[in-house]
Computed example of a mutant assay.
Amino acid sequence: MQSNLFVCCLLLLCAALGEAATRKPKKQAAPDASSKADPEPTEASATQAKTLSRGWGDSIQWAQTYEEALAKARDLRKPLMVIHHLEDCPFSQALKKAFATDDLAQKLAREDFVMLNVVHPVPDENQSPDGHYVPRVMFVDPSMTVRTDLAGRYSNRLYAYEAGDIPELITNMKKARILLKTEL
Rank of each mutant, 00 (worst) to 15 (best):
L80T: 04
A63Q: 00
E87S: 12
A71P: 11
T47W: 09
T42S: 11
Q48Y: 01
P31Q: 10
T47G: 01
K27N: 14
K78N: 02
L86V: 01
K26D: 06
L52I: 09
M81A: 03
K24R: 12
C89Y: 02
S59M: 12
W56T: 10
S35H: 15
A37D: 14
Y66R: 05
A71M: 09
A29L: 11
A21F: 09
K27V: 00
R77N: 09
D88W: 04
L70M: 01
A69R: 10
K26R: 04
I60M: 03
S45A: 13
S45N: 03
A29N: 15
Q48V: 06
P79K: 05
L86H: 09
V82K: 06
Q64L: 03
T22L: 07
P79C: 05
P31C: 12
E43Y: 04
Q28T: 11
L86W: 00
E87H: 14
L76V: 15
A71R: 00
S35G: 04
K36C: 06
E43D: 15
D75I: 00
R23S: 01
T42H: 04
K24T: 15
T47E: 13
A71S: 08
T22E: 15
S34T: 04
D58A: 01
C89A: 08
A37F: 04
P25F: 05
S34L: 10
D58R: 11
E40V: 02
